[in-house]
Design a protein around this nucleic acid. Structure first.
Lengths: 335, 335
DNA sequence: CTGTTAGCGCTTTCAT
DNA sequence: ATGAAAGCGCTAACAG
């Protein structure tokens, strides 16, 4: 069962390759209804599929979109990919991806590779969106997701970070929590974290002096985690007559907080209140239920792909702007 | 900044395209050291990248591997993808993927699409590995992961399902659990589930009559979940002097069991014992700790890619066989 | 060591 | 309505 080519089909049908090509591209007005039927017949019988590499070369386009992702094991990312993939299969794009595993260098290499694989466009879930390599992107063929660069170079799709955290924090305040902490991986330059922190600060009116900021290491050493645990313990133990509450900046950070608290026998909502950004599968079994901010990660992917498609097909290219996907507050019993 | 081609470089360097091509392909013995340096210079200055589409066409190869995945939001899958992606970026493959979202029809369409995108090889994480479309695959260019077809058509990489469940169940028995249940999504034709169940049966010596099998619906209706919950309640309540233990067939099923038990106020290891296949992130915060079988999902991906690479490069093609990736038993306090 | 040239499979003018 | 033929950017004989 050798791979058939367009000339094989042409020969079988006793027409030229041009006609076959026209058939393949839906230019049915360029042939008689008779040859059209004939070709239809032959192609379905032989099960012929055009070689997409050759087509890409001839058309000098690629119908491929490259997705550079920061960390594929992040559940957020899977959902985004799922959205992208959905859209792309509908619109006939292939999607090739690379995974940086949170390493900025790997990210750069990945992007360079994607470039040379001449993809039609990029969807970028960046490790360091302010890195120099991102300067070189054109808004014509790329969109960024999740994170947002300081200098907006391209359209960017993010969730409603600031506002939703603002609202959730307000709800905690309404329940008389008067000693609140924002728990996060290092903020440094990461827009989502900064925006979420901003929402927190706005709601609490705390000064931006880190006194209510708790940093969890990301890929840290044992001792850094111990320091974090101690800090949590200290805060809860010394709360006095205040009500201590934590807002964790994502699901994994929430996990860390929970571990720390459990280690010292503290339980929510008795000893402390807590809410988190992101709802993950396993949170559903937590008891008491955990209040959280649901983000529609899948939609981020879909929108990104859709927007990219628009750009690639020539519609609607303008100044880079930020699209915000709304979130949903889920209130349970954790504070 | 027009896209440069090989002839541009040839012209700039005042050599033929053949020489440039040779340079690009590392055939340095076919040119003087001088032209080599010269080319090196020019290429780095112009930042020229060969067009991989053209190269693929000319070589009639594609250096692309297609990954058909059953459900990208499954954490197991992300890990596998991560392994694949790692290997592939090292060996210069691009990886394009499709997601079936657990739907057999989508899976078929995805595979057809991948075919027409003429990928060099396939890695298949199947929804229904016994479906007719899988019959058409050649062992020369594909490998299957996670699930295993009844009729082995191609090399397959799975984890050590039966043995590890056998061992874990034995440990429960050693702790005097004498009323054990295997909790699972519907077994129907899914090799991993069947194998795990086999391990359970071997260890317990229960008859294969479903009396110790608890089925959780996969994407079921409310009432099916309620029925499941009731069954769990019933079992625990009526245990009498026996020690009731559950083995759950994966992380999500474990979650379901936990929810059911919690609903009626039952806690492990007091009211029942439990262990599970698969260790997920969030299990680390469970208290008491949960005994589980760790599988190295990332390694499955790596191995699959490595094996596929061997086949594609012509080495070692033989009868399809199954590779088993070892697992690790983690014993904590859940039984 | 270097260049000429014929493809790879498809698209697309331009004739007919 | 159909076909001949020139490319798309690169590779790989083959010749020199």
């Amino acid at each position: 069962m050798e791979k058939l080519t367009i000339s094989d089909i042409a020969a079988l049908a006793k027409v030229s390759t041009a006609t076959v090509s026209n058939y393949l591209n839906g230019n049915f007005n360029k042939m008689s209804i008779k040859t059209r039927r004939h070709l239809e017949e032959i192609i379905s019988q032989t099960n012929y599929r055009p070689n997409s590499t050759a087509r890409d070369l001839a058309k000098n386009e690629s119908k491929t979109i490259g997705v550079s992702i920061a960390d594929i094991t992040n559940p957020f990312t899977s959902a985004v990919l799922s959205g992208i993939s959905d859209f792309c299969s509908q619109y006939g794009y292939k999607v090739v991806f690379t995974n940086a595993d949170q390493d900025p260098e790997t990210e750069v290499n990945n992007i360079i590779r994607l470039r040379s694989e001449n993809v039609a466009g990029f969807i970028l879930d960046p490790v360091s969106p302010n890195g120099p390599i991102y300067k070189a992107f054109s808004n014509k063929s790329s969109v960024m997701v999740d994170l947002q660069a300081k200098q907006l170079k391209m359209d960017t799709i993010v969730t409603d970070n600031e506002k939703s955290v603002f609202e959730m924090t307000q709800k905690m305040i309404a329940k008389k929590y008067d000693d609140l902490y924002f728990v996060s991986w290092p903020l440094k330059d990461v827009s989502t974290r900064l925006q979420r922190y901003q929402g927190f600060l706005k709601a609490t009116n705390y000064k931006d002096d880190d006194s209510h900021l708790l940093i969890v290491p990301h890929h840290g050493k044992q001792e850094e985690y111990i320091a974090f645990n101690n800090r949590v313990k200290e805060i809860i133990e010394n709360k006095g007559s205040k009500k201590v509450g934590f807002f964790t900046m994502n699901g994994r950070v929430f996990l860390r907080l929970l571990q720390a608290a459990q280690q010292y026998g503290f339980a929510y909502p008795t000893d402390y209140g807590v809410a988190t950004y992101e709802e993950l599968d396993w949170m559903k079994v937590l008891n008491p239920g955990i209040s959280c901010i649901q983000q529609d990660s899948r939609k981020i992917g879909e929108q990104a792909a859709e927007l990219l498609n628009k750009k690639l097909t020539g519609k609607s290219i303008s100044e880079p702007k930020v699209t915000i996907i709304p979130t949903k507050l889920i209130i349970r019993e954790s504070f």
